[in-house]
Amino acid sequence: MADPIHLEYEVAADDYQAAGAASNSVKETLKMLGLPTAISRRAAIITYEAEMNLVIHGGGGKIVANIDEESVELMTIDEGPGIPDVEKAVQEGFTTAGDRAREMGFGAGMGLPNIKRNADVFEIFTEVGTGTTLRTVINLP
């Protein structure tokens, strides 16, 4: 890979119809670059869950992917309500999702745990009323 690759996707609030588009694009890009399937699978899970978090909780936002020879960095940036208690939010089973999301099979409190499990670096920067940035890195073999 010669030059680092930078991708950006806008995700709209409550847009369940478009959900999965960014994750699919990230996955396809990684596949095209010839990265191992295990890596593209992990990136797909992280991006999908992050995408859904923007749709359900973040009031929409942006997904950024930076790919170079050493790692895949995936970030989501939103200007949503922020996370009052990050420790709780990353606990399996904890959710603040509403009925609509739950009926569709989201909001089981598995999103952030799924992301954490698939990332080598997992960081959340959040402020109530200002927004949340999630940064994850997958190290390449």
Binding site: Y16, Q17, A19, G20, S23, N24, A44, Y48, M104, G105
Partner: peptide, 16 residues
């Protein structure tokens, strides 16, 4: 195998 019937099922299927 699922009982979900909405569009997002396809998104997950594509990714997996």
């Amino acid at each position: 195998i699922t009982v979900q019937t909405h569009l997002n099922v396809a998104a997950v299927a594509v990714l997996k």
